[in-house]
Design a binder for these strands. Structure first.
Lengths: 146, 146
DNA sequence: ACCATTGCAACTACATCTGTCACGAAGTAA
DNA sequence: TTACTTCGTGACAGATGTAGTTGCAATGGT
């Protein structure tokens, strides 16, 4: 299964907030236009980011403020906020292998640490990137455009 | 989204084939009993593994034979056989960011390499484990049982 | 009071996952 | 040939998740 587009949408949101915060009021409508989706989709994602403590959303006026410095929010933080994994496990395991089968009753012991190391390889790579990388990367891309 | 249990089922299948190949005829019914699911589920997964060129499935008599040595089949090979990723991308990207928005038209350039490196971190960890590790691990677990 | 905006529930449409049934195709053995 | 076992596959159901949409109450600034 692919990781849902909510993750890339969330990164898009953060990039917009940083890029436009001094020029525009960054509302869910504004974001929806840039991302090309529905404002309600944006609000649902904003709610997830808010529940994870990454942002505050301002009602009435509209607008988004980060609760931490850009360099202190990693891709992993965003991923954790956005993707609800059952028990935190990337790999779904078949429910009830047969305990009367020698393989069935040992398959979890056999696989669990290996699956975990794969998941951790992915997550630790995610921790290498921060929102500050998005800022500097986008500034560079925009400079090349001009 | 979690990775489907078909992946752990496939690893369970390979472990059973190796563990029981000299004692039992390893049929889809036999495997279904160990995994505690339906034989048709097993057959569908066997079809995927066969299409990927990892195994041959024998009709009539029943049975499964590997096309390569255990050490030459990695978790990644199994994962690729089992999980059909659209365009091979782990991360789904929102379809059509707005090209009139500076962020919208650059978001792909900004994110693509970062997402790819995360995916590759996971995949290269998967390549570290082979079916031979499953054999030796299971033999050790069974020895501890006795 | 008015207005813009967020929060949220309800709903649709669609896809995927797991499981199940039915039946034809392939292969073995009497 | 016939009988038997097993695989291959299409069709389907139920549960869950995704993405999108509508409507409206709640919030907060002017």
């Amino acid at each position: 299964m692919q990781i849902s587009s909510r993750f890339t949408v969330a990164l898009h949101i953060f990039t917009c907030v940083d890029t436009f915060k001094d020029e525009h009021k960054v509302t869910s409508d504004f974001l929806a236009a840039s991302i090309n989706t529905n404002p309600v989709i944006i609000r649902k994602i904003l709610t997830q980011l808010k529940n994870a403590g990454l942002i505050n959303v301002i009602r009435g006026t509209g607008g988004i403020e980060l609760t931490r410095d850009l360099k202190d929010i990693t891709f992993y933080d965003v991923y954790q906020a956005i993707e609800p994994l059952e028990d935190g496990d990337l790999f779904r395991f078949h429910e009830s292998p047969n305990p009367e089968c020698p393989v069935g009753r040992n398959i979890h012991s056999l696989l669990d640490d290996k699956l975990k190391s794969i998941q951790e390889a992915m997550e630790s790579e995610m921790k290498k990137y921060t929102l500050n990388d998005l800022r500097s990367g986008m500034q560079e891309l925009l400079a090349n455009e001009a």
